[in-house]
Write a protein that binds this DNA or RNA. Structure first.
Lengths: 120, 120
DNA sequence: TCCATATTTCGATAATCATCGAATCGTGGA
DNA sequence: TCCACGATTCGATGATTATCGAAATATGGA
């Protein structure tokens, strides 16, 4: 994941309704949710929801699939992990982190410094 | 960390120069960097740098301290971890994650579901 | 006290973004 | 074929944001 992709992802999430939609999808898991259901849960009109879902999709954070007349959205977990990895990369210059710098728990950054570099 | 705080943090990071500055500070660790040094590394004028650093500080992502004439910026690690925790909270509805859903490694989300809830 | 340096604030401009209603597109059932 | 429904696109409006140079503020040294 390169800087422009990270900026797109962060920018996509930095909005009330998109962040809420993303969290709904994170919690929904692979089952996902369709556009109308998300709009209803968030209480916004469908055109705005579509605008926001397109932004999340363009940022690579969610995927969509059609199921009859519904469009089902699911979280793109590799992108999500790539985002996390980018922010914590080389935390503390490689020096073992302090107690409150949980940014690099041993199992992800020390044993496997760049767990998400295989993400586009 | 509540939704508005997360949105401020994400919005602060969703900008080329702020993201770059934040990463510099993540890698600098507790030693930090002063405003001028960051501006020089990023190749932007000091007034713009000040604008961006203020945005990061307002979002709670960085802290500042004065050292003689320099203002040293450091990453606020608890806020950083709070951000990560918020995004992955209740990942997959609590169901054990798939292999590519590294969003909730056992040591953070399962053994300790909400590791960053003590962040303001 | 006076000057040099580091940083922030101010003012103006250009660009991007969120929102809504209306219109359009695509799918499936009668 | 025609209709209903879910979703997206379009057009317009109002608000927020990034950028820069100039000016102001604050600290430390001569």
């Amino acid at each position: 994941m390169d800087a422009p992709a990270v900026i797109r992802a962060l920018g996509a999430l930095a909005q009330e309704h998109r962040l809420a939609a993303f969290r709904l999808l994170v919690q929904a898991g692979d089952e996902g949710m369709h556009a109308g259901a998300i709009a209803e849960r968030l209480g916004i009109v469908s055109s705005s929801m579509s605008f926001h879902l397109a932004a999340l999709a363009h940022a690579g954070l969610v995927s969509q699939r059609r199921q009859s007349r519904l469009i089902i959205y699911t979280v793109n977990y590799p992108a999500m992990n790539g985002l996390m990895g980018y922010l914590t990369e080389n935390c503390c210059g490689g020096v073992p982190c302090l107690d409150d710098a949980v940014c690099c728990p041993p199992q992800t950054n020390i044993a496997n410094p760049h767990p998400a570099e295989n993400v586009a």
